[in-house]
Design a protein around this nucleic acid. Structure first.
Length: 462
RNA sequence: GGCCCCGUCGUCUAGCGGUCAGGAUCCAUGGUUUUCAUCCAUGUUACAGGAGUUCAAUUCUCCUCGGGGUCACCA
């Protein structure tokens, strides 16, 4: 069974890059009937892990990505890690190092001055004497001094590292006894049964170290897939400074989960020329072998397009429900079908859609000056007066086409073009020159409200 | 700087020795629309550069250039 995981460090919220690797991991697990696990890497005790975990779960929930099983918190596993530290110590695969910070710093400075690679020199690797006084020891692993470590990566291919280029006896437990990242990652992945790791390629250079741990502990090395980074417009790693990296911010901006997920799945992954993927299609078609090798630049143009695509193709009932998050309650509106149909084709986001709806069902809060001036030239007042008269005398109207018919009658009787009624009427109803079809607007608000809005505009003109 | 990864339209990408280098988005133009938007049609734009290998290179190899990542008692 394929077991994947998402293992964020608690930065407070789920960001776009993290979401994409989470999505890939999720899809790959689902496609294979496997498991998708969540582990919070909260060994940095200064932060509140519970809050961060909740933010991530909340975002997952919004997007419909559910993880399997309980969440694993690294902060609660010190006892487990300690067992493995002891094991390596007992087996002579790790050792206590008594080099002080000052001594280490000095060593590094010398190496830098000599233009050598900075690395621990192995002073205590085979130390057998009396430890120096007053220095807390750290625990280092005995890393291979020569040879090659090969990362068999599903995206990059085999990546070969030479031990002498990149390794030294790195620290696996700090002076205070707490274990370090590369050490716990290997242990946790193994213990959780993770056998396929999909993560950002900024981890590629960590991987040899983790492989050393796996091998020292006698664990199977998982299959790795290092996904290329998402860059900002400057071509650098996407970071919080770039704005709009919080996944939940996309909810606030009015993006739908379907659009965001579709957008992200196509960033660095493809299935031929296909652009639109439902969740079911993603689960069926996703395969990490089609992950791209190069980094991509984060640019939301396509997200906008996808979002409007999904809005257009979402049933009205669902849209009505989604709009509730943007303070629009129309579930019980008797004309909600007409209302939503009029508006869903012209909104890029749910937020825009909410605004459009509100502009329709509420009288204009203000009138665009230029629009008033432009629309109310010539016989505009007369046209609207005739329109009001005809509306008042007509029987109940319901459909947009019925309103359209009344408009048509007015212009026909006056012998003027359709534009003569369209412009002033639009300004009267919406306060501006653009917007949904007038017949729909009127059908939604009804005859009385239509007359009311026209009359108050006419009063304004005088 | 060492090590590693990457390099096809502005952007997301297809391509896996022979293609008019395809799609999407964006942009522009035209059409539809009482407006705006939608929708439809058309169009502009790309193989980083140089050597090889080959009958033939975007595709394989090497070099150069460019970009990125990573080098902690952070994760």
């Amino acid at each position: 069974m394929i077991v994947t995981r998402f293992a964020p460090s608690p930065t407070g919220y789920l960001h776009i890059g993290g979401l994409r690797t989470a999505l890939f991991s999720y899809l790959w697990a689902r496609k294979n009937g496997g498991k998708f696990l969540l582990r919070i890497e909260d060994t940095d005790k200064a932060r509140n892990s519970q809050e961060a975990a909740e933010a991530i779960v909340k975002a997952f929930h919004w997007l419909g990505l559910e993880h399997d099983g309980e969440i694993t918190y690294q902060s609660q596993r010190d006892d487990i890690y300690a067992v493995y530290v002891k094991q390596l110590l007992d087996e002579g695969k790790a050792y206590r190092c008594y080099m002080s910070r000052e001594e280490l710093d000095a060593l590094r400075e010398t190496q830098m001055a000599n233009k050598e690679r900075t690395k621990y020199d192995g002073k205590y690797r085979d130390f057998e004497g009396t430890p120096p006084e007053g220095v807390e020891s750290v625990i280092r692993i005995k890393a291979p001094l020569s040879g090659e470590i090969i990362v068999r990566d599903g995206v990059k291919g085999d990546v070969v590292f030479r031990a002498e280029d990149i390794l030294d006896d790195f620290v696996i437990a700090r002076a205070d006894g707490s274990p370090t990242y590369n050490f716990v990652v290997a242990i946790d992945d193994h213990l959780m049964g993770v056998n396929e790791v999909i993560r950002g390629d900024d981890h590629l250079s960590n991987t040899p170290k983790q492989i050393i741990i796996y091998e020292a502990l006698g664990f199977d090395v998982p299959k790795f897939y290092h996904v290329p980074m998402i860059h900002n417009s400057e071509g650098k790693k996407l970071s919080k400074r770039d704005g709009a990296t919080d996944v939940m911010a996309y909810k606030e901006m009015g993006y739908t989960p379907a659009a965001l997920l579709n957008f992200l799945v196509r960033l660095g992954w493809s299935n031929g020329d296909q652009e639109i993927f439902s969740m079911d299609e993603m689960k069926e078609l996703f395969n990490p072998k089609n992950i791209n090798r190069s980094a991509s630049i984060y640019n939301t143009e396509k997200l906008d397009w996808l979002n409007s695509h999904y809005i257009k193709n979402t049933p009205n009932q669902e849209l009505a429900k989604m709009l509730e998050a943007y303070d629009i309650t129309i579930a019980s509106h008797d004309k909600k079908e007409i209302l939503l149909d009029a508006v869903k084709e012209r909104a890029k986001t749910l937020k825009e859609m909410a605004l459009l709806v509100s502009e329709m069902i509420n009288p204009p809060a203000s009138y665009d000056e230029k629009a008033l001036e432009k629309a109310f030239k010539g016989e505009a007042v007369e046209v609207l007066n005739n329109f009001v008269a005809k509306l008042s005398s007509s029987k109940e109207l319901h459909l947009p086409s019925e309103y359209h018919h009344v408009m048509q009658e007015v212009v026909d009787e006056m012998g003027v073009g359709f534009g003569k009624i369209g412009q002033p009427l639009r300004v009267a109803l919406l306060g501006k020159m653009s917007g949904p079809g007038l017949d729909s607007v009127m059908a939604v608000i009804g005859v009385d409200e239509t007359i009311k809005r026209v009359k108050s505009t006419l009063a304004l003109i005088k």
